[in-house]
Structures are given as structure tokens and as C-alpha cells.
């Protein structure tokens, strides 16, 4: 059974363009604004939505996403509310894939089986859990697969050819290539070096490859979208919320940037063909 993620990525491949994957934090700056932002993302051009599950100790995230998580938690956001947000979104949108991204402890505390059941019912398509390497596939990755939820793994510049098969083994949906060894929001590497890495990963897998970390502008999205199957933008969108004068302005700024990024991705292969 093809999942929403696979269907969407196959459709875009047929259109010969990369997917735009957006990351925003559930509950940032509050539940309603975060839901409004979420609902407007597909219309603004997001093809796949990553929704962050806030955690107090996001070890792999830079300051922007750390602060977003703390804003959400300050507003009493919970795992339950993240799932509720997706249920509300699904009432209006049955097609856009949603991937939850975060750290293991809030899922572990919720209870893995209970979480997978609730996530599946809410209409969640995939999970990215930063601190669960393949060595711990038994914890969540394999149970998620049984529940019909894609477990999307990160590959990084330190993932060499020897390790890649292990990383890819139980990955489904797509593989997320973290283009720099560093935290989210770090400076982007050159498109040339990213392309070399993508070529290396393609030799090991048929899975679509998304590229993220350090992509902030339509130009960058276009340059990566030339060769990647999907382009992920997170910290730049979070910054729109952080620096907005009002909650509504934050939502509008996110949607405006997503429209620009979407244009970039849509024209990537045409402009340089």
C-alpha cells in the first residue's frame, strides 16, 4: 500500500520537480496560530509538512528551533495537542502528507504503541526521531512500520558508505539528508558538495532523497531542488514567527516565505536545464 508520502513524491517526480517540505513547530507561538499556519501551508505551496513535537532538550537543534519549542511548551503544548492539531488539519486536507519530527522521550513517555495508534488515527504519515539511530530500530522504527507509518531516517555527512546500508535498511517514505554536520539553522554547504553526497546515497537506495539544514531562500531551494527529490526548510520559517510583530503577522510571513520557496523549487530544473 502506497502511503500519502510515496504517492505525493511519485506524483512530483512525474512533474519533474522537487517537493517543498516545510518544518514548523506545533504549538508555536500558540495552538491556534500554529494550526492556522499549518492549514495555510499546502495553499502556499508546501508539498509535505513536517510538524515539530516540542521538547525541552532538543540536542540537535540550533537556537531558532530551541526557542520555538520553548514558546510552545510555555503555552502548555502537549503531545496530545499535537495529535489534535493534525486531526483538525485532516478534516480539510486528506492529501498532504504530515510527518512528525522530534525526540524520543515524549513518545516513549506517551507509550509507543498508544502513540502509534493515536498518530495513525490522527492521519500522521511519517515520523522523524532524531535520537533513534538504526541501532534502536526495535524501539519505534519497526513498530511504526507495522502501524503503517513511515520511519524517515536522517543520513549525514558522517554516514559513510559502510554505514549507509544500515541507515537505509528500515527507512521508508524518503531519506532525509542532513547536508551539514551541525545543528539546525547552521550555514549551508555549497550545492556542489551536496550534489556529490546525493549521488553517493543514490547508489545505495531507490528512496527519494530530501535535503535539509541551512536552506533559507528561494535561490538556495532552487539550487538544491535541481538534483534533490525534496527540499526541507525549517529554521527560516521559524524565524518568521520569532520576529513577527504579531501572531497573525507571523502566520502571514510564514506563508509568504513558503510561496517564494515554492516558486524556487518549481523553477529549479527549468531555469538551469
Amino acid at each position: 500500500m502506497a502511503t500519502r508520502i510515496t504517492r505525493r513524491l511519485e506524483a512530483l517526480k512525474a512533474e519533474d520537480r522537487a517537493a517543498l517540505v516545510t518544518f514548523t513547530m506545533a504549538g508555536d507561538p500558540n495552538y491556534q496560530a500554529s494550526l492556522d499556519t499549518l492549514k495555510g501551508l499546502p495553499g502556499a505551496g508546501a508539498d509535505i509538512i513536517e510538524l515539530g513535537m516540542p521538547f525541552t532538550d532538543p540536542m540537535a537543534d540550533g537556537p531558532s528551533i530551541q526557542k520555538a519549542a520553548l514558546r510552545a511548551l510555555k503555552g502548555q503544548h502537549t503531545q496530545q495537542k499535537t495529535l489534535e492539531m493534525v486531526r483538525e488539519f485532516r478534516r480539510e486536507d486528506q492529501d498532504t502528507p504530515i510527518v512528525l519530527m522530534g525526540y524520543y522521550n515524549p513518545i516513549y513517555r506517551y507509550g509507543v504503541e498508544r502513540f502509534l495508534k493515536d498518530a495513525s488515527e490522527a492521519g500522521i504519515d511519517g515520523l522523524i526521531v532524531v535520537d533513534l539511530p538504526p541501532e534502536h530500530d526495535g524501539e519505534l522504527c519497526l513498530p511504526a512500520a507495522r502501524a503503517g507509518i513511515d520511519f524517515i531516517r536522517l543520513a549525514t555527512p558522517t554516514t559513510d558508505d559502510k554505514r549507509l546500508p544500515r541507515v537505509l535498511e528500515n527507512t521508508s517514505g524518503f531519506i532525509y539528508y542532513v547536508s551539514v554536520a551541525g545543528v539546525t539553522g547552521a550555514a549551508a554547504p555549497t550545492p556542489e558538495s551536496v550534489e556529490r553526497s546525493i549521488t553517493r546515497i543514490r547508489a545505495h537506495t531507490e528512496l527519494p532523497i530530501a535535503v535539509g539544514f541551512g536552506i533559507r531562500s528561494a535561490e538556495q531551494a532552487a539550487s538544491i531542488g535541481r538534483f534533490a527529490d525534496a527540499v526541507v526548510v525549517g529554521s527560516a520559517l521559524i524565524s518568521c514567527i520569532e520576529h513577527a510583530d504579531s501572531v497573525d503577522a507571523g502566520t502571514r510571513a510564514v506563508h509568504a516565505l513558503v510561496r517564494e520557496l515554492s516558486e524556487g523549487v518549481r523553477h529549479a530544473r527549468k531555469a538551469t536545464a
Binding site: 540537535a60 539511530p133 541501532e135 534502536h136 531516517r153 555527512p157 558522517t158 554516514t159 554536520a181 551541525g182
Partner: peptide, 12 residues
């Protein structure tokens, strides 16, 4: 116990 770390750190 275990090794609950980001992929970047695993090889190291």
C-alpha cells in the same frame, strides 16, 4: 543505557 544519539554522532 543504549546509544540514543543523532546519526551524525553514531560513527564517532
Amino acid at each position: 543505557g543504549g546509544r540514543f544519539v543523532a546519526e551524525t554522532l553514531m560513527p564517532l
